[in-house]
């Protein structure tokens, strides 16, 4: 039961975390093709940024807005944190991945985690960090040039069935900055994430991946 909830949830977290790594790499390189992306991935040592997440659904009259921040240190440490409306933190560090939630004003570990599912997530993250976005067998990646550069990731096979229809990343051609990311779950459900204040290759203390509060 616990693993059943853990797997889709953490796979989802993995996707949105991995996406940001992709965007940062796009900032670094004029990403004419995915091979260039892979080469530039090697230059990324650390990333930190803020994000605003906008969730649209038929049941909502207006998008549900969430805010948070993201930290990454190569090769496999990351922290994905929401400040509001529901405080939560996902931390991967030294081979361990944990999710924390706010309970009674304190952060407490999400007990729905399963060790096996965590390993699956870590394997996926490692692949994304290596810039292998077009080599992940779970997604088919395509580039489209227009007013903006648009990267579309479409799930392949059944692993994402019922979870995600496609992911669309819009990148400014002028400065290669990512403008928006859309995770389309269904025709009635869309998650858009806008990143800001991105800082690349600035030292991030290890405590970022150890301290919860």
């Amino acid at each position: 039961m616990l693993k059943r909830i853990c797997y889709p949830l953490h796979k989802y977290i993995c996707i949105i975390s991995g996406l940001f790594l992709l965007f940062s790499q796009l900032n670094y390189a004029l990403a004419d093709n995915f091979e260039q992306l892979r080469k530039d991935a090697a230059n990324i040592q650390t990333i930190q940024a803020r994000f605003v997440q906008s969730k649209s659904m038929k049941i909502l009259s207006k998008p549900l807005i969430s805010e948070g921040c993201f930290y990454y240190v190569s090769p496999d440490s990351f922290r994905w944190e929401y400040f509001k409306p529901l405080k939560s933190i996902v931390i991967a560090h030294k081979g361990e991945t944990k999710r924390y939630i706010s309970s009674g004003g304190k952060m407490t570990e999400d007990k729905t985690g399963g060790v096996q599912a965590m390993k699956i997530v870590l394997n996926e993250i490692t692949a994304w960090m290596s810039g292998k976005f077009d080599q992940n067998p779970s997604f088919k990646a395509t580039l489209k040039e227009g007013t903006y550069t648009e990267i579309t990731l479409t799930p392949v096979g059944k692993s994402m069935a019922g979870m995600i229809e496609k992911i669309i990343i819009t990148v400014s051609k002028k400065d290669t900055a990512v403008k928006s990311v859309k995770i389309i779950e269904s025709e009635n459900s869309l998650t858009r994430i806008d990143f800001s204040d991105a800082v690349i290759n600035k030292v991030i203390p290890e405590s970022t991946f150890q301290d919860i509060e």
Partner: peptide, 11 residues
């Protein structure tokens, strides 16, 4: 009704 994770995933 809908149930979402903090990450925006509709469960």
């Amino acid at each position: 009704c809908a149930i979402l994770t903090a990450e925006g995933m509709v469960l």
